[in-house]
Amino acid sequence: MRIPGRSAAVLAALVSTAALAALSGCTVQPGDADGKHHLPVRIQLPSSHAPAVTRSAASGGQAPSGRTGAGGQAPPASSAPATRSAGPAPRVLWSRGDSGSGVRELQARLRQTDWLFDGPTGTYDDLTERAVSGFQGKRGLPRTGELDTVTWQRLLAMTHRPGKWELYLMGGQPADAPDPRCLTGRVLCISKTSRTLRWMVDGRTLQTMSVRFGSQYTPTREGVFHVYWKSRHHVSTLYDSPMPYALFFSGGQAVHYSYDFAARGYAGGSHGCVNVRDEAAIAALFAQARVGDKVVVHW
C-alpha cells in the first residue's frame, strides 16, 4: 500500500515521538479538573537517584516529613527514643548509730513485718541494720542496711502507725509529771501511767527507768510505802524465781531487776513486784537507796 509523501512524513514523526516517549519512560498526567494548568510531566528517576526513606515510627524511626502517626498526631521532631528522667537519688534518713523517736517508730514497724524481734529501743543498732537490709533485699532494693526514703515509703505502705505501747514495748517511754507526794525527801516515784520509776531527792529527778507491774490477778499495790528491806541476791520463796537488787516496800512486793522483762518487755508481767529491765540502772539505785526511803506508786 502506498502512502502519499506528506502523510508518510507525518506518520514518521508520530512514530519517532512515541519511540522517544517509550525510551524516556515519560507518561502524561491528566490536567486539573478546571483545565487551567498545562498538563504536567512526571519523570521517573532511576532507583539509584531516589531520595533516602526515613524509618517509620513503627520501626523506631521518624515518619517522613509532613506525615502524621496513629491517631492523626504528628510524630516528635527528633527520631531519638524518649528517655525517662532518673529523678533524685533516695535520701538516707537513719543509719547505724542514730537514735530518737524516728528510729523507735522504724523498729516498731519492722516488728510488725517480722523483720525485727527485739526493741524498740530507739537506737539504730546492728539488729536494726540487719532487719532493714533483709527488708530491702526481699523487695529488690539495694541492701544497704540504711533507711532511705524509698525503703521508708515501702515500709509505711505495709504497716500501721504504731501505738504508744508498741513504741515502748521494751521501755524507754518518757516519764510523766511526778506525783505531788514525790516532791519532798528521798522517793522512789513509780507511775503506772507512763510505766516509769523516778529516783528523786528533794524534788530533783536523779534517775529514770522503765518498769512493769503485776498482772490483772496479781496487781501491784498503789499508795505510799517505805523500803523496809534490801536483798541483793534474793530468790522468791513463793515462785522460786530470782529477784536481784530487791527493794521490798509492801509485803512480798519489791522493786527488783527482772530477766524476763529484759528479754520479753511488756509481753509479760510480774506477780505484783515492780520489775526493772535495765540491770545497770537498778544496780545504781540499789546502791543509793536506804531502808526507810519513801515509795510512791500512783497512776
Rank of each mutant, 00 (worst) to 15 (best):
R181P: 03
F117E: 08
K36A: 14
T205I: 13
L14A: 05
G171C: 07
S79Y: 09
V132K: 00
L155Q: 02
V10C: 02
P51I: 00
R104D: 01
C273W: 05
P88D: 10
D34L: 14
A287I: 04
A108G: 01
K36Q: 13
S270P: 06
G171D: 03
R221T: 13
D32E: 12
L141A: 12
G5A: 13
V274D: 01
R111K: 07
S250E: 13
R204T: 15
S101Y: 06
S191A: 04
F286G: 08
S56A: 15
A281L: 13
F286Y: 15
R109Q: 06
T113I: 07
M243G: 04
A267P: 04
V224M: 08
Q112R: 06
Q62E: 12
W199M: 06
Q73F: 14
C189W: 03
R221H: 10
P4G: 14
A74Y: 09
R2Y: 11
P75V: 13
S99W: 01
A9C: 08
E105D: 07
T113N: 01
S65T: 15
D202E: 14
D125Q: 02
A281K: 11
P244H: 08
S191Y: 04
G268Q: 10
A12L: 11
V224W: 02
G134H: 05
A284G: 08
L206N: 09
L147H: 01
D176R: 07
R143L: 10
Q253D: 08
T123I: 09
E279N: 11
A9P: 05
L11H: 06
P219L: 03
R96N: 04
H256N: 10
V291L: 00
Q173E: 06
S48M: 04
G265C: 07
G60S: 09
V255T: 08
D278M: 02
R2K: 13
R277W: 04
L285S: 06
W94G: 00
R104T: 03
L169A: 05
G223M: 06
Y239F: 11
L116Y: 02
L116E: 00
F117G: 11
P46T: 02
F261V: 08
